[in-house]
Amino acid sequence: MRVVIAEDSVLLREGLARLLADGGVEVVAQVGDGPGLVAAVDAYRPDLAVVDVRMPPSHTDEGLRAALEVRERSPGTAILVLSQYVEERYATDLLAGGAQGVGYLLKDRVADVGEFLAAVHRVGDGGAAIDPEVVAQLLGRRRRADPLATLSPRELDVLSLMAEGRSNAAIADRLVVTEGAVEKHISSIFTKLGLPAAPSDHRRVLAVLTYLRA
């Protein structure tokens, strides 16, 4: 997999590059701001861009805006946005164009190297990776009388992991159950929430997130 990194802190940029290289990912370019990212993606057409939200010159959501521009110009490039803070609102912006090849993670997640590399590969392969904190915010928002209350605790766990963009196998692995059990939970969740069954993982993420945001 070929990756471009956009991150203004040199320390973190070098660290990320090393971490990705160790994980067998080819880093083709490293840039430090939004316009640099757009130019690098145009030049290299990478499989994935790893982007920091806060970058010069504005130090606000520069990276996010550049990421959205990249999405428009180069649909083949997946986007993984890293941020010091995760907020549901940014996730909403990012997912407006679909959940295919989109990731949005807290920067801290880099510390769990294995998990992080898995997320990088998942997003690079067209999947999704949504930070558990965003999912928690979304779940937390809907605690008034709503269909979520009818879910069992285990089903809520499965729903959260689905919303993070994980596959059935990954969910089964995390909850230490069989894939068959996960499938049963998922069909039960979709029935209870009145969602149509989704054929692919990324469609499923989008369906779940859309439901949680509504």
């Binding site: 806060r54 606000t60 959501d61 010091q84 803070y85 907020e87 609102r89 940014y90």
Partner: peptide
């Protein structure tokens, strides 16, 4: 909060 500066009160 960063989101306040970036996106305003609602967010």
């Amino acid at each position: 909060p960063a989101v306040l500066a970036d996106r305003g009160l609602d967010a």
